[in-house]
Design a protein around this nucleic acid. Structure first.
Lengths: 340, 340
DNA sequence: AAAGCATGTGACAGCGATTGCACCATGGAT
DNA sequence: ATCCATGGTGCAATCGCTGTCACATGCTTT
């Protein structure tokens, strides 16, 4: 099956190639009857335009780039598949690029990629969605940009986000409602600003409930399992142990559970644990981890729509949509075990 | 920074564009002095050929496709990044396509993708590496193909694989050495043939050690955590319980551990558990899961090299390289607790 | 009835590379 | 001295599409 070209279609339909082009690109000023003729010819020949020719002539590539940091394989893959789901049907292809936030070369890497591949639009995921140098370079080259969950300079580009802060506020309130007063918090990696908001939610809930914020209950993690373990060892060695620990992501929460198990603490009877992200590990742990699920795929889909709109020259309004996360209650949280 | 074209380079170097093209494509019959002049001009202008133009004229796309099934996010992402690491420096881009093995449309989907995007080469990962219809279609269209861990029709294309069977043989032997005689096995999803080999390794080890194969100790799973749970409930309810359970992947092993915990069985004192894959969950479980680590990224890199060789018209010899997996011993396995 | 204006369509020139072929040196074989 | 491979180089066509612009056509408007 050799591919038909625009000339074949034009000949079959008895029009010029320009008209075929117009029909294919849904331009206006084509008579309905002509359009139908052309469409029939397209269908009959199973015509697909040659992408390279299109790009070359039109100076577009029909390729989007997804620059991702590494907040976890499921997150990345979910985003990736969400993007594909939206962009493929619209004739756009996706190129992925794993980037390291701390890498000095990142900006150069991304810029080269964009220039060489003539990328039409770029999506940035956390933590790179807050990478100022990358964003600036993209803006300078005038590349349409959309960001997932940025926390800074939100006016620089359209974006999508979730109500992380609110969710962690809710989660904290829920723990308080279970009778917990000493709630430990393990913060995420400082580079990853979106995760930082989770800490704000925690604080807000304590304040709202007039529980003093005790700095000894707050540990800095870096999103890794190991950092969760380390923080848990500190928190659970306190004279006045917390009765609950809220980790800013599931991996760190898993670390907490590991330490609790090793110390022979019963979850949730002696210590409640909750996480954030609802990664698969959350329900594979024992007991199941109470956590917060983000609508990752939806965010990606929404973001892709915003990006394509920009590319097509439509105005995109800020601020972009906020999608809601959900608390998933499992067995790792329970009533506080307060000594009388 | 506006991109230089081949004409700019030719002018600066004082040669024709044809010669620039020859230099860039490392063709022969260029005088060394000319080559140097051109290379200097390329460097000075920071010239990068326009991909679209190259594709159009040369009828190549410089794009590879990775068609992946879903054996787990880490596996997929590892493969993906391994491929990128090799193909990018050689000027090839990657397009990813999540495919569902059971999807009737998969072959059509892949074929369309290949035809529309003029993909230069395709990589298939398990379980799609054994999808006969997809492979046939690719062969029919004469697209260079490489497969990761195929189990059937290995002569159809170059491939890479690991010694899954041998590793699970080793793992089983190790359990036997710890005194286990009743070793349960939870098999993987039947579509995923590579995982099937793991069962063969288990059987071989038993036979070698003259332990009768007891069908009641063998359960069918489907790679999911839940199927591991279900299988474990059956195995651990047996009158003659196994003293160890070997699951064909980590997720199922995690399910086993969950059930064991729920039943109050101590791991590994009362029941040893081992998995396969060394996914992150393996060391986040408590106790840490003894498992087998595959060199996923290396496989991807090797496979990409094989693919690019084919594309460039070099002969690739079968069979392809076998990379070794490693047993990772953690705390979930221990001496058998045999009743006297 | 003439002018003006949208609407519909096609001819043709690129886009920036590759590729086939012609051409010119050069040096060894005859 | 002549011829012929052979290495080295350039001209011009080509890939399949889009964008510009000119040109028809049919309808209002005066």
């Amino acid at each position: 099956m050799i591919k038909a070209t625009i000339d074949d279609v034009a000949e079959l339909a008895g029009v010029s190639i320009k008209t075929v082009s117009r029909v294919f690109n849904k331009e206006s000023n084509v008579r309905a009857s002509t359009r139908e003729k052309v469409e029939a010819a397209i269908a009959e020949l199973n015509y697909r335009p040659n992408l390279s020719a299109r790009s070359l002539a039109g100076n577009k590539s029909f390729v989007l780039a997804l620059i991702y940091g590494h907040p976890g394989a499921h997150y990345v893959l979910d985003i990736q598949e969400g993007v594909l789901e939206v962009c493929r049907p619209q004739g756009y292809e996706l190129v992925v690029h794993p980037g390291v936030y701390q890498d000095k070369e990142l900006t150069k890497e991304v810029t080269e990629l964009i220039l060489e591949k003539r990328i039409d639009g770029v999506m940035l995921t956390p933590p790179i969605s807050d990478h100022a140098a990358v964003i600036n370079s993209l803006k300078k080259h005038n590349i349409p940009l959309v960001r997932v969950a940025p926390t800074e300079n939100k006016s620089l580009s359209p974006y999508v986000e979730t109500n992380d802060q609110e969710s962690s506020y809710d989660m904290t309130c829920q723990l308080i409602a279970l009778g917990h007063q000493r709630i430990g918090f393990i913060a995420g990696h400082p580079d990853h600003r979106a995760i930082g908001l989770r800490f704000e939610g925690y604080k807000a809930a304590l304040i709202e409930n007039q529980i003093p914020i005790d700095k000894t209950l707050i540990e800095q993690g870096d999103n890794s399992f190991e950092s969760g373990e380390k923080a848990a060892r500190v928190l659970l060695a306190l004279e006045q142990k917390p009765t609950a620990i809220f980790a800013a992501n599931d991996d760190m929460a898993a670390g907490v559970m590991m330490v609790a198990h090793q110390m022979g603490l019963k979850i949730p009877q002696q210590i409640s644990v909750s996480g954030f992200d609802d990664t698969p590990v959350a329900h594979q742990l024992w007991p199941g981890l109470t956590t917060i699920r983000q609508p990752i795929r939806q965010m990606a889909k929404k973001a892709t729509e915003l990006l394509l709109k920009q590319i097509k020259g439509k105005d995109v309004q800020l601020p972009a949509s906020i999608l809601s996360s959900t608390i998933i209650v499992r067995e790792s949280t329970g009533k506080a075990n307060v000594k009388k």
